[in-house]
Nucleic acid binder design. Sequence first.
DNA 1: GGAGATGATTGAAG
DNA 2: CTTCAATCATCTCC
Length: 355
Amino acid sequence: MDEQPRLMHSHTGVGMAGHPGLPQHMQEGTGGTDGDGRKQDIGDILQQIMTITDQSLDEAQARKHALNCHRMKPALFNVLCEIKEKTVLSIRGAQEEEPPDPQLMRLDNMLLAEGVSGPEKGGGSAAAAAAAAASGGAGADNSAEHSDYRAKLSQIRQIYHTELEKYEQACNEFTTHVMNLLREQSRTRPISPKEIERMVSIIHRKFSSIQMQLKQSTCEAVMILRSRFLDARRKRRNFNKQATEILNEYFYSHLSNPYPSEEAKEELAKKCAITVAQVSNWFGNKRIRYKKNIGKFQEEANMYAARTAVNAANASSHGSQANSPSTPNSAGETGMLSGCYRKLLLFFFFFFSFV
DNA sequence: GGAGATGATTGAAG
DNA sequence: CTTCAATCATCTCC
């Protein structure tokens, strides 16, 4: 029977003696020396434990209150807190400092770049802006496409934000609820603030995984929209004849160095009603295609060279009209030509044709 | 429908 | 950053 002293010890150690909420016989038992009396006490306690589930809620509350008011309770509670703190810290050691999820970062970056998350950029996205620049001067149908794109993107944005708000609200509500529960429970069992913090972070992690799904689907929607839009952008239009003539004229009149400066590009872009990027593209394509097959472009080169020569001659004779050297109106121009210039044109044409 | 022309895109190089 | 070179996707002409 060496269990008996231990039980007794534990009984006194836990310190229920003098507790106002405990039955008198239990309090007496702590200081008692009578073996039978002690046995009786233990029997009573066991009986109480066994019947505790049968007690009414009010009775249980009374016992809870009694326990809370016990004089040894704070000391015991602190000890338990310390033990718990150590345990929790050792558990946390392995879990903490986890790096941010790269996939989530990617999704966040993409949503930000597309203008879905973050501040609204007037509905404009990188794709819309790029396409707007690339399609330059293409006209009303393109701006209609852009507005369509913007409208759809804004729709996605709205849904995303509504859902995100819902998730955040639900997360906050749930977190508050759990925290209240834990605070309430912390009065009867040791729950450290760190433990609450950990619980909150667990909840946040769970909700952020739900949020990630939302972000994933939003990204997919944007990608689909964007790919459709970019496909539409690929439906290019050839530049109009006048624009091509302006570009060709510049190209062949600068054949020794067909690299227009930024200013020249801007001017050409303005004249052709296209973007500077399109001018750059055009010159890039032209240079490479010309170089690849000079023979094929010879006739074209001769024609533009002749035209340039005529323009130059024209400019010298009509000094005041020289401010538009690169875009002659062929029909009008020919009509204005004197016999002398017509001869000159023919000379240049044939000269360059046989060179 | 096919061939060639043409504007745009992409990746490498400087 | 610009330019080159290759390539793609579409347009235009026959």
